Simulated scan of single mutants.
Amino acid sequence: MSSTAPTSTASLIRLLDAADTLPGAAELRAHTYDLLRLSPGESVADVGCGAGRAVAELAGRGVRPIGIDPDPRMLAAAGERWPGLDFRSGTAGELPLDDGSVAGYRADKVFHEIADPAAALAEARRVLAPGGRIVLIGQDWDTIVIDAGDPDLTRTIVRARAGTVPSPRAARGFRSSLLDAGFGDVTVEVKTAVFTDRLVPAVLSGFAAAACAAGAVEREQADAWLAEQSHRAEADRLFLAMPLFIAAGVR
């Protein structure tokens, strides 16, 4: 990562790096690679590649990954970290790929950020060769579980945070969306990520800020909620669970 990169980008990359190294994260990524069922030398698009870790891991499996992201700063960081790999500017709705040019398509925690998931799936179908496989993984923002003394307030805060996401419930619709887009052999499974430290304080602060900004809770309520979570952190009692939905299908 260049030292001239904006602080916001550097902070986001640090957050992504922390998430990528949590217990079980590498195994979960590996599972999505397995679901692609790629043979050596076949090409795969990793859409929303960020700083490129998955692209590098896929390359290590002997396939030809193409990392695609709309953020030029992320692409710069990816190119710096993983020189020689293929990173391209593009969005899920407009991929820089020819029709039927890839054997695999992967999007990790991306579809909740897309305002029109159906259009993105149509684009995925366009670039996939017949028989190519698609793998999606993402969280449902309405089903995040946080242990707290006031469950009603917590539910309000979680719901308010979900309201800031373009498609907060895209993951629960993966199966229907893939079928509607014409994919076959669709499967869905759920893995639950559990967080008890490291990322939790920053995540909870962001949730509270979003709820206040939306007018869902008063600042005093949010501060009290965060204070309780701080006490939980000091006592090693923080708990956040996030169901991750993994869907796969065939073009």
Rank of each mutant, 00 (worst) to 15 (best):
M1E: 06
M1A: 13
S3D: 11
A5N: 02
P6T: 03
P6C: 07
T7A: 15
S8G: 09
I13D: 09
R14T: 09
R14S: 12
D17N: 12
L22R: 13
A26Y: 02
A26T: 13
L28N: 07
H31M: 12
L35S: 07
L36Y: 05
L36P: 01
L38E: 00
P40C: 00
V44L: 04
G50F: 05
G52A: 09
G52Q: 08
A56Q: 10
E57K: 09
A59K: 10
R61D: 06
R61F: 09
G62L: 05
V63A: 06
V63P: 09
R64N: 08
I66P: 00
I68R: 04
I68K: 02
I68P: 06
D69E: 12
P70D: 01
P72Q: 14
A77Q: 08
E80G: 15
G84I: 08
T91F: 10
T91V: 01
P96E: 07
L97H: 01
A103Q: 07
G104I: 00
Y105H: 03
R106E: 02
A107P: 04
K109C: 11
H112R: 05
I114W: 01
P117K: 04
A118D: 15
L121F: 02
A122W: 00
A122F: 00
E123F: 03
E123D: 07
P130M: 04
V135F: 10
Q139E: 15
D140M: 11
D147Q: 14
A148D: 04
A148I: 01
T154L: 11
T154Q: 11
T156D: 11
I157K: 14
R159Q: 07
R159N: 05
A160T: 12
A160N: 08
R161D: 02
A162E: 15
S177T: 10
L178C: 03
L178Q: 03
L179Q: 11
K191G: 10
A193D: 04
A193Q: 13
V194I: 14
L199S: 01
V200L: 15
P201Y: 06
A202L: 06
A202R: 08
V203R: 06
L204K: 01
G206D: 06
F207A: 09
A213N: 13
A216M: 08
H231N: 11
R232A: 15
D236W: 10
L238C: 07
L240V: 15
P243D: 12
P243V: 04
G249H: 00
V250F: 04
